[in-house]
């Protein structure tokens, strides 16, 4: 086989192909999808000389192993994990040369949830509606990886970044999520935003690419009845009948009928992508019109150090 490719030796718990996602199709019921930790996805691409829109692999906790069908350069970012090439330790957060036939392996994440693997040239599966991302809600894009799969790679398009190493993200003690109130905060009891702010929430095990589910105090409603289905945005904090807020991530449904008490700004969702079940969640309601301050506790948001 002369086409550049990798073969999947171990698929891991849930490994999907992801890029920047599908834009402009939500009116047809198509979620955006795309890498949950976009800064980590972009960084991995930069490390191997790819443009941002090249497709990477997003792993979930358990890593993966692929055999290189050609000589290639790879880079691993996002959740920190041991990286090995043919059993020998290799760098996390830096370009790694993998010879044809060698096995690149990511061990279990030491912290965080999702690691990203970029290959020079990007994963070259056929795009669907302009994106190679797997959307787990509607089933668009390539199926999650399975052992024995062959993934085509694109043609390398540039030199790898001149980089020694990337700062490894620390272990965040808690997930801090700023929330812009609305559009349906008036559907909740007066003290609901306060409950959201001071409640002891934790990341629930049922969290996935569709939403970060939480355990904690229920948010009481002021209004009963149903809200006619309305458009949903990335980061919407939707409150189903059990009262436990769900933060919508990339594969979220495009419309929904449960009220949204607030919205987490998109640039703060990478941290949600890396928060393990049980991690304390602190919601910080903002004044409407206030601007969220950036924080740097996000796996994958480490700065690239010039060599």
């Amino acid at each position: 086989m002369t086409v550049r490719h990798v073969d999947v030796v171990r698929a891991g718990a849930l490994t999907t192909v992801q890029d920047l996602g599908r834009r402009g199709h939500r009116h047809l019921g198509v979620p955006r999808a795309g890498a949950l930790d976009l800064p980590a996805h972009r960084l991995a691409n930069r490390l191997v000389g790819n443009p941002d829109h090249a497709a990477t692999l997003e792993t979930t906790l358990a890593g993966l192993a692929v055999r290189a069908g050609c000589a290639l350069t790879a880079a691993v970012t996002g959740a920190p994990c041991p990286v090995r090439v043919d059993g020998r330790p290799a760098a996390w957060g830096a370009p790694v040369r993998v010879e044809r036939g060698a096995v690149l392996e990511l061990g279990a994440a030491t912290h965080g949830v999702r690691s990203y693997v970029a290959f020079d040239g990007g994963v070259g599966v056929a795009p669907v509606l302009g994106s190679r991302s797997r959307d787990l809600l509607s089933g668009l894009g390539p199926a999650p990886l399975r052992e024995g799969d062959t993934l085509p790679l694109g043609r390398p398009c540039g030199p790898a970044a001149a980089v020694d190493t990337v700062a490894s993200p620390g272990v965040p003690r808690e997930l801090v999520l700023p929330v812009v109130p609305g559009p349906r905060d008036d559907w909740f009891a007066k003290d609901a935003l306060r409950t959201l702010a001071i409640g002891a929430y934790r990341v629930a095990p049922a969290s996935n690419r569709i939403g970060l589910r939480t355990e904690g105090p229920a948010l009481p409603r002021a209004r009963s009845g149903e809200l006619p289905s309305e458009g949903m945005v990335l980061g919407a904090v939707q409150v189903p009948p059990d009262g436990r807020p769900v933060v919508f991530l990339a594969d979220h449904p495009t419309t929904g009928g449960y009220p949204v008490i607030g919205v987490v700004p998109e640039d703060r969702l990478a941290a949600a992508a890396q928060a393990r079940p049980g991690t304390p969640v602190r919601f910080v309601p903002l004044r409407r019109g206030a601007v969220a301050q950036p924080v740097r506790t996000v796996p994958g948001a480490g700065a690239v150090m010039p060599s």
């Binding site: 834009r23 402009g24 939500r26 289905s229």
Partner: peptide
């Protein structure tokens, strides 16, 4: 604006 999403009684402009 990349998404204009009509629904039952609303239009979302994102």
């Amino acid at each position: 604006v990349d998404d204009i999403v009509p629904a039952a009684r609303t239009v979302l402009v994102d």
